[in-house]
Amino acid sequence: MAPGLITLDKVTKIYQTKDGPVESLRPLSFDIREGEFVSVVGPSGCGKSTLLKLVAGLLPITAGQLSLLGRRIDGPQKNVGIVFQGAVLLAWRTVLDNILLQAEIRHLPMAAARERALALIKMAGLSGFEHKYPWQLSGGMQQRVSICRALLHDPPVLLMDEPFGALDAMTREKMNLELQRIWYGSKKTVLLITHSIPEAVFLSDRVLVMSERPGSIAAIYDIDLPRPRSLDVMSTPEFAHLAKTIRGHFFAQGSLDH
């Protein structure tokens, strides 16, 4: 088995609030392998997003060991690409310039970055919109821009926090297909936080089910559906079975979150 690219060993997160400490994550231990697509599903407030921020180094862990690419995480990680639920684009920058922000802040050679940005724009189906402003694009297109920005510096790891949560169901399915295509072409390691069980099953090699707060791992499912997957896979009995099993966790806990 390939060594873990992201390894968590008894990772714990406790927030200090005015009302005293709040346990967000119970000790979590798992590995994500290189090139693996892992989704995390769980009820609202179970600490899924916290988990992603810990891996990105944006929040410090309270206890345990957390490493990325074999190095302990002790601050914001530069070798990841992050996509949030909102596209978080800068209103005064065009599509191209928003993507190039990544290169500007990292001081990457601009000519090469520009070329790569244009290639990403083409891949994301945004050709012709390079010089448009974010507010001239639909929600789905904005999110594609933010994915391009996350990929510009060619990070080995892509961290996504409910990237399609704000999109309508049809756009969402389309984006799922595109994300699969991007991932298939680049073989990046992906950690996807999502509310949608079908989305998690459709995209992932493994689905991590988290329990209610304080979050802990309730189960891990291997998704052995053949790749590349088309949307038709969603109507197969295997898919339905997996989705049903995962959904069962939330019914058992008495909380249904989608």
């Binding site: 990105a56 944006l58 530069k78 992050i82 909102g86 978080v88 800068l90 922000l101 990292r106």
Partner: peptide, 27 residues
């Protein structure tokens, strides 16, 4: 200023200076 934007800039290794001139001030 959106907190997610600040997080993104941090993950890009942004200096305080860059954060101010490229993000906070125009915003």
């Amino acid at each position: 200023i959106e907190h997610d934007m600040v997080d993104l800039a941090r993950s890009m290794g942004s200096s305080r200076w860059q954060m101010f001139f490229k993000i906070s001030l125009p915003q």
